[in-house]
């Protein structure tokens, strides 16, 4: 048993300083008003303690200026803190340049984590210090929530749809990873470790790993026969996928859709939802055939095609 009484968690992300600053401001605000009320209650209760049974206190209606002061005053203080809190939140939503992508699959009761070049990990995540991370997350079953207290951020992991956030680790160390949304019997066992490493250590760790996520995605792409229709030269029965990621794709209906991760996922599990212009609806559904993890690997592979395509230009 640890005998020390910890009061603050480790601070290991770009968000931590702002969250801690805001928390300190809020704690000062909270303590101030708590003391004001406690002292006022104690002083009034003692000073005006009943001295005799026949005391008749004066009648005091109230005071409009006081009512206005104690309604508006604390509210303005709170409003002054709201922009900082919104800024912290927006930071987790704002795409960072050169972010490293981390794909997360939650299932009862484990985390499966992978980045495009890295090996597959379970309940462990190794990341280099100082590099922005973009998390793309999905659940295979119930709700989960990806929570790293040292990063001061959590985000729910939902079945059927991707959720994202951005964060940058700023301190080397090993930190708790928790599931913060109740998910069943072993909810408290759905925990892991995030290892933030120096770049050189990270490279060393990376080279010791097995097959990368992109390579696994390519293998699935071949295994499920995607490659037979989605020819790279655009002459196949399905559209070419080189450079498709994040491009604007025109549909049969005339609508223009951005080919992001959610679009790619939908096109695999429910191909009829959106048909690309000049192509017909012949692709079968892969719903229930490819795991969420496999879908993320295929998407990572499709995204890598984009990078090659750009490099050629």
């Amino acid at each position: 048993m640890n005998k020390t009484l910890p009061l603050l968690p480790e601070s290991a992300s770009n968000l931590a300083a702002d969250v801690d600053l805001l928390m300190i401001l809020l704690t000062v605000f909270s303590i101030f008003f708590t003391i004001v009320i406690f002292v006022a209650v104690a002083v009034l209760a003692v000073k005006y303690h009943r001295k005799s049974e026949d005391e008749v206190p004066p009648h005091i209606h109230g005071s409009l200026p006081l009512e206005i002061a104690w309604s508006i005053g604390p509210f303005l203080l709170v409003l002054a803190m709201l922009p900082l809190s919104a800024k912290i939140m927006m930071n987790t939503y704002t795409p960072q340049p050169y972010a490293m992508e981390i794909f997360v699959t939650g299932k009862q009761w484990m985390w499966k984590l992978q980045h495009p070049e890295g090996p597959r990990e379970i309940n462990e995540l190794h990341v280099p210090i100082g590099k922005p991370l973009k998390f793309t997350m999905i659940s295979e079953d119930v709700l989960h929530s990806f929570y790293v207290p040292a990063f001061r951020v959590k985000k729910d992991v939902l079945p059927g749809r991707y959720t994202n956030f951005w964060v940058t680790p700023t301190k080397v160390g090993t930190y708790h990873l928790f599931c913060a949304e109740y998910c069943g019997t072993q909810h408290s066992g759905m925990i892991g470790k995030v290892h933030v490493m120096e770049q050189s250590d990270y490279e060393k760790w990376l080279s010791g790993g097995d097959e990368s996520m992109t390579a696994r995605g390519e293998a699935l792409f071949n295994q499920y026969g995607c490659v037979t229709c989605h020819l790279a030269d655009g002459k196949g029965r399905g559209p070419a996928l080189v450079g498709v990621y994040n491009s604007m794709v025109k549909m049969q209906t005339g609508a223009i859709v951005k080919a992001d991760e959610s679009y790619l996922r939908e096109s695999i599990i429910n191909p009829r939802a959106k048909i690309v212009e000049k192509y017909s609806s012949i692709m079968p559904t892969f719903q229930g055939q490819i795991s969420e993890e496999g879908l993320l690997q295929i998407i990572a592979y499709i995204k890598s095609l984009e990078q090659e395509g750009e490099a050629q230009q």
Binding site: L15, V19, M23, A86, M89, P149, K155
Partner: peptide, 13 residues
């Protein structure tokens, strides 16, 4: 405190 967006990302649940 918990209604403050940025702090709630940490404190929620």
């Amino acid at each position: 405190t918990v209604a403050m967006l940025g702090v709630d990302l940490h404190l929620h649940d």
